[in-house]
């Protein structure tokens, strides 16, 4: 019974983090939720008797791809704030 509860809770958390990643308005928040999703995935692999995959997922899904995404987000955002201020200078009505 407890095992079922644990499995159900894990799958529920997995689906919740995934849907939160998809509907989140803030891109940075979406990426952080995606990292959380990777960690929950790693826990799921352990429950599925797949320790090999769990190790890889913890290192790759939660660590490496999270850093890759965060780096990209910060760069795109940096460029965007710059451009928004630049375009606001040129044409003030563009922002409305």
């Amino acid at each position: 019974m407890t095992e079922w509860l644990l499995d159900g809770l894990l799958v529920f958390t997995l689906l919740m983090t995934a849907s939160a990643t998809l509907v989140s308005r803030d891109l940075f928040r979406a990426v952080v939720l995606f990292i959380a999703f990777g960690l929950v995935m790693a826990a799921c692999w352990v429950r599925l008797d797949a320790p090999n995959i769990a190790l890889a997922e913890a290192a790759i899904g939660a660590g490496l791809s999270g850093v890759l995404f965060l780096d990209a987000v910060s760069q795109l955002r940096r460029g965007q704030t710059r451009k928004r201020s630049a375009s606001a200078d040129q044409s003030p009505e563009a922002g409305t």
Binding site: N52, A54, L55, A59, I60, G63, L64
Partner: peptide
């Protein structure tokens, strides 16, 4: 449990840390 893929990922993560 372990192997080339996991070790390679950890190696890359160490490199990313250096790179940052």
């Amino acid at each position: 449990p372990g192997g080339a893929f996991q070790a390679g990922a950890v190696l890359a993560a160490a490199g990313v840390l250096m790179r940052l």
